[in-house]
Simulated scan of single mutants.
Amino acid sequence: MEWYIIGSLIVLLLIVLFVKNKNKAIMLLTGHIMTTLKSQEAFIVQGVYNIIPKDIKQVVSSQHIAMIISYAIMMIGRLLKNEDTE
């Protein structure tokens, strides 16, 4: 029950922050998204590697998938950073 209260307070705080200072709220959310993506990178690679067909697994190693996922996360970060500056 207390998690609902804490979650509601966090959402309320984010709404107030968004209304008062839109740029700071967006920067806070994009920063959180990037830290979450970076911390879960290994899990994402494992999930992507597990869903590709066996024929492709024979040709492509998990290291190649990891490089592609890492590059995709880096590009997402750049896109979010460019949107903040505009």
Rank of each mutant, 00 (worst) to 15 (best):
Y49F: 03
M34F: 04
T30V: 04
L37P: 06
I73C: 00
V11I: 10
L37Y: 07
I10M: 09
I51P: 02
L12N: 13
V45W: 05
Y4F: 10
D55A: 05
G77K: 01
F18E: 08
K54T: 11
V16P: 05
N21G: 03
T36W: 06
I44N: 10
I5K: 08
E83W: 03
I6C: 04
H64V: 08
D55E: 13
K54N: 15
G31F: 04
E2N: 12
I15E: 08
S39D: 11
E2T: 11
Y71Q: 04
A42Q: 15
M34E: 07
D55Q: 10
F18Y: 10
A42Y: 12
K38R: 10
W3L: 13
Q58H: 08
Q46L: 13
Q46M: 13
G47E: 13
L13I: 10
I26T: 11
N82E: 15
I56T: 10
T30R: 12
N50P: 06
I10W: 04
M1N: 09
D84M: 01
I6V: 11
V19H: 01
E2S: 14
G31I: 04
V59G: 03
K81A: 05
Q63A: 12
Q63K: 09
S70H: 04
I10D: 04
S62L: 08
L9A: 09
A66N: 02
G77F: 00
F18D: 09
A72V: 05
E2Q: 09
S61G: 12
A25Q: 06
R78Q: 12
G7Q: 10
V45G: 06
K38C: 11
K20E: 00
D84G: 00
N50A: 14
I5P: 02
T30M: 10
N21S: 08
I5T: 10
K22P: 01
A42R: 07
L37K: 01
R78M: 09
S62K: 12
